[in-house]
Amino acid sequence: MDKKKYSLWFLAPSMIIFFVMFIVPTVSSFYFSLTVWNFDSIKFTGLDNFKMFFSESHLNIGIKNTLIYAVLTSGLKVILAFLLAIFLTSAIRTKTMIRSLVFFPNLVSTIAIGLTFKAMMHPTKGLINSALGLIGLPNIDWLGNTDLALYSIILTDVWKGLSIATVIYIAGIQSIDKTYYEAASIDGASGWHKLLHITLPLSRPSRNSVLILSFIGGIRTFDMIWAMTGGGPGFATDVLASIVYKQYAAGFYGLSTAGNVIMLILIALLAFPLQRYLYKREEA
């Protein structure tokens, strides 16, 4: 009965586009990553690309940086957005206004934000250093210092991504049943206790969403890096996605594809189990 009413033909357009444009390239990337190729010729080389990726320091720094980036951006967003959401669900009167202000960066393209912050982080003339100078702090070379550059980009990413994380948290906190708070108040719980024992545990679904979303976003990051440093100084801020681009531009298609495959493996090995684990705990 159902099968007659709901024709599978309705699925076809979506599936065909998705299959041709996404699944075929993804599956074939496993093969291409094992070769040295261009659009005219192809030579199978086994795991050479991956060996090179892990041994060359200008390539494997991308794996390290990608992991640092994903872990730090998702961690910072989870913590800061929670605090901000608590503040914005309290009784303050300007919260609608603040919410709009916090939210807007989410609509602006990453490339535009990256460029803006690159200018504000200028080592001698930048706005951030001028502000620090006002309170007597020395100039910091935010994007030129190899030890610091990646973290400056991470902070900018958090600035942009905080908005959506906060909004998710706000939705989660507002959906908590009010009777919990009332019952706790009758039992004489303080605001701090309510926060710790009601809001914190019951906002777990939102926390999981924020964590997974920003972790995957962190592994895939490209625009922000490209707009702010282009992977430099040297290779200090190269991530997997920027290496994929650089190898592509240099004509090393096999290496570039291998970078894509490593990104896929990282997501399969880290993000997927993380999601599984978080949702299992959510159900329990």
Partner: peptide
């Protein structure tokens, strides 16, 4: 939802 598009194989397609 999770996996990023594979760049060069897409161009190949």
């Amino acid at each position: 939802l999770m996996v990023p598009p594979a760049i060069l194989p897409t161009i190949w397609v």
